[in-house]
C-alpha cells in the first residue's frame, strides 16, 4: 500500500509539473526575415521586418475579407487588416527587443506597413524606427513572444540583412531550435537578472551585431 500511495503521489507531482511547464504552446507560426537599417554615419535607425504567417492563421486572418478575385487579395484590400495588425502589435512591443551595449532601446510606432498574400499565406511588412538612433559596439536584437502563443522562426535563407552597415560589422544569429550552447549561455548571462527573463526566452531568436 505504502509504495502504491507513494507512486501515486509522485505521478501526481510529475503531471502537475509537466502541466505547469507546458501551459504555453504556439498557435501561430511566423517565419521572419529582418533587416537592420543603418544611417550614413553608421548608426542604427531601425528594423524592417517581414513576417510570413502559417497557412492556418493566414486563412483565419483573411476570413470574411472582401476581394475582387476569389482567393486573391491585393495590398489595398488587405490595408485595413495590416492597420489592425500593427495597432495590435503595439501591446506586445512588436515582439522585438533591442539592446545597444546592454542598454534597452525603444521603438517608435511602425511605418511603411503592408500585407501581401501569396501562395495562400500572408506576409506582414513593417518598419520599426528606433526612438533614438544608436551607434553601439554591440547591438542585440531579439524576436520572440514571451507567452509563446506565436512561434517565431527566422527564415532559412538570408534571415538577417544589414542594410548600409559600416564595414567590419559582424552579424551572428542564434536560433532557438539550434539548441546551441552559446545561445543558452548568452541568454542566461544577459537576462538572468534582467527584466526579460522568462519562459518565452527559450524560444528567442537572437541577432547580435558587433561593430568595430
Amino acid at each position: 500500500m505504502g509504495m502504491r500511495a507513494l507512486f501515486g503521489w509522485l505521478l501526481a507531482v510529475g503531471l502537475t509539473l509537466a502541466s505547469g511547464a507546458a501551459q504555453a504552446h504556439p498557435h501561430v507560426w511566423i517565419t521572419a526575415t529582418s533587416e537592420l537599417l543603418y544611417a550614413a554615419d553608421g548608426s542604427v535607425t531601425g528594423v524592417r521586418h517581414a513576417w510570413t504567417f502559417d497557412d492556418m492563421f493566414s486563412a483565419y486572418a483573411v476570413q470574411g475579407l472582401e476581394s475582387k478575385t476569389k482567393g486573391a487579395y491585393t495590398r489595398e484590400e488587405l490595408g485595413p487588416l495590416a492597420q489592425t495588425n500593427v495597432e495590435s502589435l503595439k501591446e506586445y512591443a512588436y515582439f522585438t527587443f533591442a539592446k545597444a551595449d546592454g542598454k534597452k532601446e525603444r521603438f517608435q510606432e511602425p511605418i511603411d506597413y503592408f500585407l501581401d498574400y501569396k501562395d495562400a499565406v500572408l506576409t506582414l511588412h513593417f518598419t520599426l524606427p528606433l526612438k533614438n538612433p544608436v551607434k553601439p559596439r554591440q547591438l542585440v536584437l531579439e524576436v520572440f513572444d514571451r507567452s509563446f502563443f506565436i512561434d517565431f522562426q527566422m527564415a532559412k535563407d538570408n534571415p538577417v540583412k544589414l542594410v548600409g552597415a559600416p564595414g567590419g560589422c559582424q552579424m551572428k544569429l542564434d536560433r532557438p531550435s539550434d539548441g546551441s550552447a552559446t545561445a543558452q549561455k548568452l541568454n542566461e548571462q544577459t537576462f538572468l537578472n534582467g527584466e526579460n527573463s522568462n519562459f518565452g526566452m527559450m524560444f528567442a531568436n537572437k541577432i547580435t551585431v558587433d561593430c568595430p
Partner: peptide, 9 residues
C-alpha cells in the same frame, strides 16, 4: 496568467 490568451492581430 495569459497561458491561452486570445491574440487578435
Amino acid at each position: 496568467i495569459a497561458a491561452e490568451r486570445t491574440t487578435c492581430f
